[in-house]
Nucleic acid binder design. Sequence first.
DNA 1: CGATAATTTGATACGATTCAATATATGTGG
DNA 2: CCACATATATTGAATCGTATCAAATTATCG
Lengths: 248, 248
Amino acid sequence: MPLSTSDRSVVEPAIRRLSALRLLSAEARASLEYAMLEGLQRGGPGEDLLAEGDSVDSVRILLSGWLCRYKMLEDGRRQIVNFIFPGESCDTHAFLLPVMDHSIATLTPVVYAEIKRARFESLLAGDRSLAEAFWCETLVNNAIQREWAVNLGRRMALERVAHLFCEIFERLRPVGMVEGNSCIMPVTQMDLADATGLSVVHLNRTVQELRASGRIVLRDRTLTINDLDALKDAGLYSPSYLQLYRRG
Amino acid sequence: MPLSTSDRSVVEPAIRRLSALRLLSAEARASLEYAMLEGLQRGGPGEDLLAEGDSVDSVRILLSGWLCRYKMLEDGRRQIVNFIFPGESCDTHAFLLPVMDHSIATLTPVVYAEIKRARFESLLAGDRSLAEAFWCETLVNNAIQREWAVNLGRRMALERVAHLFCEIFERLRPVGMVEGNSCIMPVTQMDLADATGLSVVHLNRTVQELRASGRIVLRDRTLTINDLDALKDAGLYSPSYLQLYRRG
DNA sequence: CGATAATTTGATACGATTCAATATATGTGG
DNA sequence: CCACATATATTGAATCGTATCAAATTATCG
């Protein structure tokens, strides 16, 4: 569903995030903004943007809402392997590989920019820092993916959930989606369970434990972290892997 | 420990692997070979090649032996987040980020080629297909990392170990390290436990279960898979994520 | 408002961890 | 080449964390 708007602020999260990774020239910024505004799309919740096995011929940059990357096992078990937050892009270089190894789904209503591959490539060809910013994003993504392996492999339920909440909070902050000590949490507990490798029931109990100990408030789709440092301790969280404020 | 040799076959695994990802010109091949041969290094088992927090100024390409990427939690829990096999490179673009988010250790004696960043960059600048091959490697790595999240989050012990064995087997094959239905397995059960997110005791029992059911033989540091398809079934393994035989 | 989805609760079962002990390999120096 | 020390693999028993199943409650949406 194409979306037209004259409001350039919709693309701001992407510009913000990329600028944090690499200092972008005014021209690079402008041409990217323009390309994004031309390709604005909307999606409803619960849609697959890309499915495992699809080939990819365009780049998507999320501007609002949440996406997730997930994989399914034959018998229906689902693992969310990562979230995608506003400002982040789906697959800037996925076309170098033949097909998607995983699926990408909307968890909420979303707005994103879709840029055709050729267009995207010429954008990158025109500006080295832009190319580097997108590559950095891939590398940071890789680092996040590694931390998820640690989370799933070596942390206990309470630590896992605490860690995930810290990560979400810290990833939303640089794109301006944190207010005070709160951010939105627009996903179901089933999604959180699939992201932490827990059953819904146990995830629910774990969340309640975090609530009961006063570490978080989670209601009305809003997460409030009373004491972020305490939650980080509980989740054995060390933020360096996000490399949030890099500038080459 | 620098290593000199006149035998060019040491670099073959790397050439093979990169060639599988992208068709390389004879010149690209030759210049890469030359750079690798100039920077040959040896390492013993149990050494950190790079530690979390280090900054990276050279690229390493593994030629023989096994490495692992791992992260530690404060209290000593370790998660191996990936293996690195002969022909694979450690950090071709890690210098785009300021510091390592994880450590890389030798699991066996190794031989690798170390190429200084500037040298490496000029190599890539000189040949587009070479640059693309290395980037593809990063993307494939990312896909493997996602599959590890699935393994750790949603597979049970037996499935996890079966899956890991299948993956190892399939990653060793294209670099010629599989003979018939056997490959070497030069790591301890503790390493396998840390890779699968299990305790050593339970990993041991799981391996025994795989042995008892006749699916594998594991002794003398050699893994023999009697029926690969059966092991894949047991591990809910679907190999597409490795994207082994790509050519752009 | 009713229908459906999401969250919460309870009870039970199972998979995996832990601790402790033993057995087997591997490596080292004499 | 053997004796010893150390690392690795194996076994058993008890415990703990998490899953599963089923039901009840609460929220959400048309």
